[in-house]
């Protein structure tokens, strides 16, 4: 089990009588980019929500670094170092870029209930916040309200806030959704750089991005794992081609 940073056994989720996800056994190696792909309705986002505990599974187990997290809350797994992003870019729109990062960095300081303290008490996070802002290329927008950022920059900001928590495992829900070509190149570079000291699981529709970035690809169909492997093996798998092009392909 220690070979994998994240492992699931028999993971399942039923909505009423409908099994959105059944018997999924994922094995994610550390310091890799692991992509979840599949046609619409394959259960990618459901798996994602199960892993981050935003939904409780109906069956199965989830292990993070060998420790069972199946019954934990989203807050608990976030504090363990498993942090997610969202499909719709999740930033605090009324806060500036800098304040967005400060909120992410401030929690471990334990000051966040102290309503009588001034914000100066969070000064120790300033340097790290500026560093992260620079890393995603937002330095000139440091004091811009997140609501006023272009979409690609919001995604960059979201990535920076996720990294602020120094997570071991980053889960990205369609990081490229809604982005233009040049933004995709920028975000790809950031994700690539993450691999050095973190693990990334991402759900992504853009197959060229998946091909470029992923070490392992898991293909889901109707809630089950259809195929798994690197891009070359998965893309030549007959069942995968069938799933993407429709059942009556043959």
């Amino acid at each position: 089990m220690s070979d994998y940073i994240l492992e699931t056994q028999g993971l399942g989720k039923a909505f009423g009588g409908f099994m959105a996800v059944k018997d999924v056994a994922l094995k994610v190696r550390p310091n890799t980019v692991h992509a979840l792909i599949g046609p619409n309705g394959a259960g990618k986002t459901t798996v994602f929500n199960l892993l981050t505990k935003f939904m409780p599974p109906t069956s199965g187990h989830i292990y993070f670094k060998g420790k069972e997290i199946t019954q934990m809350t989203p807050v608990q797994v976030a504090r363990l170092g498993l942090v997610r992003s969202f499909q719709i870019s999740a930033v605090f729109s009324g806060l500036t870029v800098f304040e967005n990062l400060r909120v992410a960095l401030a929690r471990p300081l334990g000051l966040s209930f102290k309503f009588w303290r001034s914000l100066d008490s969070l000064k120790s996070t300033d340097a790290r916040a500026n560093e992260l802002i620079e890393a995603v290329g937002l330095t000139e927008f440091r004091d811009t309200r997140a609501a006023d950022l272009a979409y690609g920059r919001k995604r960059a900001l979201e990535l920076a806030t996720t990294l602020a928590l120094d997570p071991e495992l980053v889960l990205l829900d369609e990081p490229m959704a809604g982005l233009g070509q040049e933004d995709i190149a920028g975000i790809s570079k950031l994700i690539q750089a993450l691999k050095a000291d973190r693990t990334v699981i991402m759900v992504e529709h853009n197959l060229s991005v998946v091909a470029d970035l992923s070490d392992t690809i898991t293909v889901l169909q109707r809630g089950e794992i259809l195929a798994e492997g690197d891009y070359a093996s998965v893309s030549s798998d007959k069942r995968v081609i069938e799933a993407y092009l429709g059942g009556d392909y043959e």
């Binding site: 981050t52 935003f54 989203p74 807050v75 976030a78 942090v83 997610r84 992003s85 969202f86 999740a90 930033v91 605090f92 729109s93 009324g94 806060l95 304040e99 967005n100 400060r102 909120v103 992410a104 401030a106 929690r107 300081l109 000051l111 966040s112 209930f113 102290k114 309503f115 009588w116 303290r117 001034s118 914000l119 008490s121 969070l122 806030t161 928590l165």
Partner: peptide, 20 residues
Amino acid sequence: SPFGEVLRAIRDNEPRAVSL
């Protein structure tokens, strides 16, 4: 205050605050 900033963060995007 640090508390007020978290409040505004929750107002803007509660699931994101949870994920942090």
